[in-house]
Simulated assay, not measured.
Amino acid sequence: MSTDNSSRGRQDGINTRLAHGPYDPQSQHGFVNPPVVHGSTVLFPSMESLNNRIRAPFTYGLWGTPTTKALEDALTELEGAAGTILLPSGLAAVTVPLLAYLSSGDHCLVVDSVYYPTRRFCDGTLSRLGVEVEYFDPHIGEGIAGLMRPETKVVFLEAPGSNTFEIMDVRVACDAAHAGEAVTMMDNTWATPMFFKPLDHGVDLSIHALTKYPGGHSDVMMGSVSATQTTYGRLRDTQMQIGVNAAPDDVYLVLRGLKTMGIRLERHQASALALAEWLESREEVSEVLHPALPSFPGHALWRRQFSGASGLFAFVLKGDARKAAAFLDALRIFGLGYSWGGHESLAVPVDLSDRTIAKGPGGGALIRLQVGLEDVADLKADLEVGFAAANTL
């Protein structure tokens, strides 16, 4: 079933597009899901076709299969991109575009509230390769233009900020980068294309950990990068030079998860906001970091750019690390574990010792919550048990 309804003068809604995608079941005998193609070698019927294989849709397993193409096409449509590449982890989706566009002697601007493994790659591998990385305040606004240099080749964004959820003006940052002929990249895992489309705001390369909401069930690791017409070729070429793609079984799991991502995100959003509002009323909590709360410092900027919020936010528990440990150890439904975007709720303490500028809030211990698909009343009861345990100290 095709979702191209340009001839009807309208476009299907997001959940309809997620449910059907650009894949045509009639291309595979009517089966509603794309087949899982395991393969490395592709046979050509003649020497002429072998010699002209650049025109063939598939040439070798590393370059992709019908399975990977189905997910690439779905994400490209959602992002409004020229093309998408798939990678075996969210971190790989960060590192491959950075390697594609940075060389020795280049300068790279990175928002200070970036995902810690991104910083580790920048301070480790990029530094070793001779790239100078400079971190900037997520609230810098138009001041980012003053950080641009002739050798600045990449401006790397993440919004909201990792763990502390700072909101930045993406369009302003991209305009400054493009004025200096730099490429912009953005980790958009928190919002997904459901709630924010980076390319519509001037971003050149949109990065996602498909491990999170697109996969949705905590059983797969994958990343994607969706690019503009001018940046896709170099991105794809670098991917093939490095020699990395996603495995077909993992791709199938993300394809399956993508079908229900929209309705799951509606539940994640509603439950997380209900808990965030409730936490604001607790005397044990000094601050709640959720962009959709009117009390959040970047709320107005968030509303101007984003159409929704996901299930990840943080709060400051009054007290020290010992109190936070007691709170976390008492939880039964919230699991203690990393990652997010799955069906289950998670809670972890946040360490911001890597930050150089965006130090985060004071007033206690920072705890990050991933709000899953459980009943809100049960999640509140679980957190109340945590508060009771912390209050005994």
Rank of each mutant, 00 (worst) to 15 (best):
M222H: 01
R119T: 13
E283G: 04
A326S: 11
Y135M: 13
A300F: 08
D382C: 10
Q241H: 12
Y101A: 01
E287I: 13
Y101M: 03
F121A: 09
G83C: 00
P361S: 01
L369Q: 09
A324C: 05
A177H: 02
D4L: 06
F387L: 14
V172A: 14
A365R: 01
G360N: 00
D200K: 04
F313M: 00
G319N: 07
D320Q: 02
P88K: 02
L265F: 09
D237I: 09
N33R: 12
T84L: 02
V36C: 11
L373H: 06
S7C: 13
P25Y: 02
E132C: 10
E344V: 14
R368P: 12
L98I: 09
A274T: 10
D12I: 13
A274W: 04
A388G: 10
T76D: 01
A19I: 15
K197T: 13
Q239H: 00
L369K: 06
D24H: 05
Q269D: 14
C108V: 12
D375S: 14
A56H: 00
G386Y: 06
A270W: 05
A70I: 06
G64P: 13
E287F: 11
D250W: 10
M47K: 13
G335Q: 08
A365N: 02
H208G: 05
A19Q: 14
G360P: 03
R171I: 15
F313C: 02
D219M: 07
G311D: 06
E48K: 15
R8E: 15
E344N: 13
A176I: 12
G130A: 06
F195V: 03
D249G: 13
Q241F: 13
P150Y: 08
V36E: 10
W302Y: 14
V172I: 14
N5C: 15
T65H: 03
T95V: 08
G143P: 09
V42F: 03
G216C: 03
D123M: 15
L366M: 05
S6T: 15
S218M: 15
R8D: 15
R303K: 10
E72I: 02
V94E: 02
I54V: 15
R322P: 12
G335E: 08
E266I: 08
D204W: 04
L373E: 09
H290I: 14
G216T: 05
L43I: 08
F196W: 12
M222Q: 06
L275V: 08
R53G: 13
E374M: 07
G298T: 10
P150S: 11
V385L: 11
A70G: 03
G262P: 01
T41R: 06
T118W: 00
V172C: 11
P248V: 08
A388F: 08
G233N: 06
Y60K: 10
G364M: 07
L71A: 00
F195G: 03
V254C: 04
V111A: 14
A272L: 04
M194Q: 15
V371N: 04
E132R: 11
A381G: 09
T68F: 06
M261L: 03
S310C: 11
E79W: 01
V371R: 03
S2G: 11
S113Q: 04
K359Y: 06
D200N: 05
N163W: 12
V385I: 12
V94F: 02
M186G: 06
